[in-house]
């Protein structure tokens, strides 16, 4: 399977990316790891006429500490996020989630910014950044703005990104020692979650329980009100009606959400040293 023809340009700096986007307009697409975009182009679900390769822009690939936050450049690979000592120490939920994506080869190519911009509700990182209360830095012609993870995801493959903006960085609060839990239910190796749960510091977010990462509000309120994990987890699917598909019916997804939320919260409690 071969994509439809396109022109390829390699950006050399963040400024150069914005120039190329202005020059090529809606015909162009950004190419980071290519592990969502190229499969879609191979089956002609997407046929951009220009690809702007941002993967080798040096200033977009880094992990650093900035006060109370960790900041991760948009083109940092899943493998680097998974193996970073800084992230493992201060946001272990994020490094663990990155290590659950696909397989080693996919993690070598795929990037944090690409996964978030792609906004697949079944993916690992969108729910993780919502659970972590992360913030995305969006760079456009008039500068950088910050958008909270929970305001960024709008629908299936739809985000708050404007057509002339890129994700330049991802910011997460540093929380060493705070307990976290992660559950990903799959049937096959290197697959997406049928349902996934990420939790840290009393926040819970779920993958594949709707068109964007879902927050089980009733569960979070029950926890905040001092109820036990079993009682709180039993409310995890309240008001949440995910679509059924060939992998799972709506009722089965709701069942998984309750069971996996309980397991994730129990793990988080057992890990908490804060």
């Amino acid at each position: 399977m071969i994509p439809a023809p396109f022109d390829y340009v390699r950006a050399t700096s963040a400024e150069h990316i914005l120039e190329l986007m202005a020059q090529h307009g809606d015909e162009a697409k950004l190419l980071a790891g290519g592990h969502s975009l190229l499969p879609m182009m191979k089956v002609r679900l997407a046929s951009p006429t220009v690809l702007i390769d941002i993967a080798s822009v040096p200033e977009l690939s880094y992990v650093k500490v900035d006060g109370d936050d960790l900041v991760i450049g948009a083109t940092t690979s899943h493998a680097t996020v998974a193996n970073s000592d800084l992230i493992q120490a201060d946001a272990p939920l994020l490094s663990y989630a990155a290590a659950q994506i696909g397989d080693p080869q996919i993690r070598h190519r795929g990037t944090i910014g690409g996964s978030l911009a792609h906004s697949d509700p079944a993916a690992d990182l969108p729910m993780t950044l919502v659970a972590l209360d992360g913030t995305f830095e969006l760079l456009g012609p008039s500068g950088t703005r910050s958008v909270k993870a929970e305001d960024f995801f709008i629908g299936y493959f739809e985000t708050a990104l404007e057509h002339d903006e890129i994700i330049s960085a991802v910011r997460v609060p540093r929380r060493p020692g705070v307990g976290w839990g992660y559950e990903k239910f799959t049937r096959r190796a290197n697959d997406w979650a049928i349902v996934g749960i990420a939790t840290v510091a009393g926040r819970v977010a779920m993958a594949n329980m709707g068109s964007i990462p879902a927050r089980p509000v009733a569960t979070e309120q029950a926890l905040a009100g001092g109820q036990g994990i079993a009682e709180a987890a039993a409310l995890a699917a309240d008001g949440i009606e995910p679509a059924g598909d060939m992998h799972a019916t709506t009722a089965y997804r709701q069942h998984l959400a309750r069971v996996l939320t309980r397991r994730a919260l129990e793990t988080a409690a057992s890990r908490n040293q804060a």
């Binding site: 390699r10 190229l38 993967a55 190519r109």
Partner: peptide, 15 residues
Amino acid sequence: GVSVKSCTVLTAQAD
């Protein structure tokens, strides 16, 4: 130096 699936990498990306 790292393993990749070459059916999902463009020759152009390997330039």
